[in-house]
Amino acid sequence: MQAFDQIQELWQKHEVEVKVSADEMLQQVKKEVNGLKLKSALNILGMLASFIAIAIMWALFHFESWTTHVGISITLIAIGVYTLLLYRDHKLISKNDYTVHPNEYLSSLKTYQLNRYKLYNTLYWFYVIALSLGIIFYFVEILSHFNMMQKSLAIGLTAIWIIFCSTILRKAVIKREKERIALLIEKFERISAQFSASE
């Protein structure tokens, strides 16, 4: 039994250092970077699809009240500005070749991380307020065609959806993206350190 304890103690003292080459690490992060770019591009496409759908609805339907036009305008402006911010961030992570310039890409990734923090915190609330204001103006005319039960249902479901997106969904997205970007930054820091050590 004493021999087993000595072996166990020796094993616990033994540290195994795993070295991964910069090339292997670049292959690992390639998949993650491509996933980040794809997710970013899909977000932009989703926002553009929303913008186009609302613009088509505005062009095809005849609205009588000026409030409806103001509401749709506010909504389109909010979606347009948010889409431009998403595009700016997408360009940031797509402009540098991470296989050739890992240090530059690391810098871009850190800026992207900071921009996403602002986007999901301060800027997000401006977006939600603008969308809510647009919906309120839009509902002035639209809800006049509904009975009391339909009005209550439309207002209730819209409020629940906005609250759900602003709390539970937003927090889950922030947490997942924060972890993903932090892991990428850590990997690029290790790659940069290995490149510096090999020079």
Results as ranks from 00 to 15, higher is better:
1 M>H: 09
2 Q>R: 13
5 D>H: 01
6 Q>G: 00
7 I>K: 07
7 I>Y: 05
9 E>N: 10
10 L>S: 07
13 K>E: 13
19 K>W: 06
20 V>Y: 11
20 V>T: 13
22 A>E: 13
24 E>R: 09
27 Q>L: 04
27 Q>E: 08
27 Q>S: 10
28 Q>G: 05
28 Q>L: 05
30 K>E: 02
31 K>A: 05
31 K>E: 11
32 E>A: 02
33 V>D: 08
33 V>Y: 01
34 N>C: 09
35 G>E: 06
35 G>L: 00
37 K>S: 06
39 K>H: 05
40 S>A: 11
40 S>I: 09
42 L>R: 14
43 N>R: 07
44 I>V: 15
45 L>S: 15
46 G>I: 00
50 S>F: 08
50 S>C: 12
52 I>S: 12
55 A>F: 10
55 A>N: 12
59 A>I: 02
61 F>I: 12
61 F>E: 09
65 S>K: 12
66 W>C: 03
68 T>M: 04
70 V>A: 13
73 S>V: 02
78 A>W: 04
83 T>A: 10
85 L>R: 03
86 L>E: 13
87 Y>W: 10
87 Y>D: 03
91 K>Y: 02
92 L>M: 14
92 L>P: 07
93 I>K: 01
94 S>K: 14
96 N>S: 15
96 N>F: 06
96 N>T: 15
97 D>F: 15
98 Y>N: 04
99 T>R: 15
103 N>V: 11
103 N>M: 11
104 E>H: 11
106 L>P: 00
108 S>C: 14
113 Q>H: 10
116 R>E: 15
116 R>H: 09
119 L>N: 08
128 V>G: 02
129 I>G: 10
130 A>W: 07
131 L>T: 05
132 S>R: 07
133 L>K: 00
134 G>T: 06
134 G>N: 02
138 Y>F: 15
138 Y>S: 14
141 E>P: 00
146 F>R: 00
146 F>W: 10
147 N>G: 13
152 S>P: 03
154 A>K: 01
156 G>H: 11
157 L>W: 00
158 T>Y: 03
159 A>H: 05
159 A>D: 09
163 I>N: 03
164 F>E: 01
164 F>Y: 13
167 T>Q: 05
169 L>Y: 09
171 K>I: 05
172 A>H: 05
175 K>R: 10
175 K>D: 15
176 R>S: 15
179 E>F: 00
180 R>H: 09
181 I>T: 14
181 I>F: 09
181 I>H: 03
182 A>D: 12
183 L>R: 06
190 R>P: 01
190 R>Q: 11
191 I>T: 03
191 I>R: 07
193 A>K: 10
195 F>H: 02
196 S>T: 06
199 E>N: 11
